[in-house]
């Protein structure tokens, strides 16, 4: 399902929430030149005027996608980074804290 950038992000958040206890989310990104049809065997395909970035995400049996154009890149990128930070929460925390904790433990 092709979505607008904003609704893609909110749907993606929902995907992360839904897979908290089971399953996984996968996100694909790739460059897209705006053509949906295969290259014609004869003659040249029309030259792409602008490249975009295509995002696909799937979790369980739901699939969503969105296309980010150049003018929206900054906005999307920031929102996407925040989303990732907020949702990749099952990962182990950094070692720095552990090192500090062990130092403290040693000192006392």
């Amino acid at each position: 399902m092709l979505l607008e950038n904003d609704s893609f992000l909110s749907e993606l958040t929902r995907m992360f929430q839904r897979t908290k206890n089971t399953g996984s989310v996968s996100i694909t990104m790739k460059r897209w030149d705006g053509h949906n049809k295969p290259k014609p065997r004869t003659g040249n395909a029309p030259e792409p005027t602008e490249y975009k970035c295509l995002f696909r995400a799937s979790a369980r049996n739901k699939k969503i996608s969105t296309v980010v154009s150049q003018k929206d890149v900054t906005k999307f990128q920031m929102a996407y980074a925040t989303l990732l930070k907020g949702n990749l929460i099952g990962l182990k925390r950094g070692e720095k804290k552990d090192a500090k904790a062990t130092k403290k433990a040693k000192a006392t």
């Binding site: 990104m29 897209w32 490249y51 975009k52 990128q77 990749l88 990962l91 950094g94 070692e95």
Partner: peptide
């Protein structure tokens, strides 16, 4: 593959570059 939180920051940086490159006119 990673299990560590600190890689997310690095990933963000990499993704930032990648999105910019992909959605450009060049």
């Amino acid at each position: 593959k990673t299990e560590h939180n600190q890689d997310v920051k690095k990933l963000e940086k990499l993704l930032g570059h990648l999105i910019r490159d992909m959605a450009s006119k060049e």
